[in-house]
Simulated assay, not measured.
Amino acid sequence: MRIILNSENLNKLPEDTIYFHVASSDDNKNKKEYINNHIKNARFISFEDDLVGDIGIHGGRHPLPDMKKFSEKIMDFGVNGETPVLVYGKNSFTDASRLWWMLESIGIKNCHILYGTLDSYMYEGKTTESGEVLYTPSQKRDLSLNNNKLLNYEDVKSIIHDDKYIIIDSRDSQRYEGLIDPVDNHPGHIPSAINKHYEELLLGQNPPSIDDINNFFKDIDKDKNILLYCGSGVTAGANAIYLKEIGIEYYIYPGSYSDWITYPGAIIELGAYFGE
């Protein structure tokens, strides 16, 4: 079964699939919207409160939370390493993709994501539920962080000119090339990174096909190690999902560009990168 599913495919998931509703925050508005409308038995996840930690000097705009506590919370929701999971965003596919790669990093292998959002799902006339969701914490407490997939500044610095790696910047071309950067105010990209704007595969009414994804990455040497980053570790999740769809593993830089630029002496390149 595909990782990215449209609304028509949700009924093909096993009955014990656990759904996660990703909202932007844990405020009253988002909680009320969740109570009123969610996909069957979906657990509530707040992007700002559950998927992001405390902002410091380093770590970027959306630093990782304490991953041990995150893992414990996911198990409290009833998830273990064998549980099928589907994540969806209330109004953001990429917020849900952040949860997707974080779940991957703690050992969730059978994880899917809804193409689009809950808003588009409801626009299609699909059925939702209301009310609180009851769940039983998992008795199998075996989730643990796979640190090998998550790279930090020093890791990335050591591979920027290592020909065994390909570094992919998932932002739009203007931010990548340094023409503008209204978000991080330091235009440019990490040295040797190439640009693959995640949104190019989200423009259609249906999920991108496997052929679409292969074509998107046709110039990538798939035998090399692939490192993904974006502005702050959110939209790179979409590219992580695409790669996984075609059987390619990835590394991810959670702090991404907004972490990179906080280090004195960090090198920034402008323009497109065409290799050495």
Rank of each mutant, 00 (worst) to 15 (best):
K157T: 01
S158N: 02
S158L: 01
S158C: 00
S158H: 02
I159D: 14
I159L: 01
I160S: 00
I160H: 00
D162F: 00
D163K: 12
D163Y: 05
K164W: 00
K164M: 02
K164Q: 00
K164Y: 01
I166Y: 07
I167A: 12
I167T: 14
I168N: 05
D169E: 06
S170E: 04
S170I: 04
R171L: 02
R171E: 07
D172I: 04
S173N: 12
Q174V: 08
R175H: 06
R175K: 12
R175A: 07
E177C: 10
L179A: 11
I180A: 08
I180W: 07
P182V: 09
P182R: 09
V183D: 14
D184W: 06
N185A: 12
N185C: 11
H186G: 11
G188I: 05
G188Q: 03
H189Y: 07
I190F: 02
S192L: 08
A193D: 14
I194R: 14
N195Q: 13
N195C: 10
K196D: 08
K196W: 05
H197W: 08
Y198W: 05
E199K: 09
E200F: 02
L201E: 03
L201Q: 04
L201F: 02
L202K: 05
L202F: 06
L203Q: 15
L203W: 08
G204R: 11
G204M: 09
G204N: 15
N206L: 05
N206V: 05
N206F: 10
N206T: 14
P207Y: 12
P207K: 13
P207R: 13
P208G: 03
S209R: 08
S209K: 11
I210K: 14
I210F: 10
I210S: 09
I210E: 15
D211A: 10
D211L: 03
D211V: 06
D211C: 09
I213T: 02
I213S: 04
I213K: 08
I213R: 00
N214T: 09
N215Q: 03
N215F: 04
F216T: 12
F216I: 13
F216W: 10
F217I: 03
K218H: 15
D221F: 10
D221L: 11
D221W: 09
K222L: 15
D223K: 15
K224N: 04
K224E: 07
K224R: 13
N225G: 07
N225H: 15
I226N: 12
I226E: 15
L227R: 04
L228C: 10
C230F: 00
C230P: 01
C230H: 00
C230E: 01
G231K: 07
G231R: 08
S232E: 14
G233Q: 12
T235A: 11
A236N: 13
G237M: 12
A238K: 05
A238S: 15
A240N: 11
A240D: 14
I241F: 13
I241P: 14
Y242F: 15
L243F: 09
K244G: 11
K244H: 15
E245V: 11
E245H: 14
I246N: 12
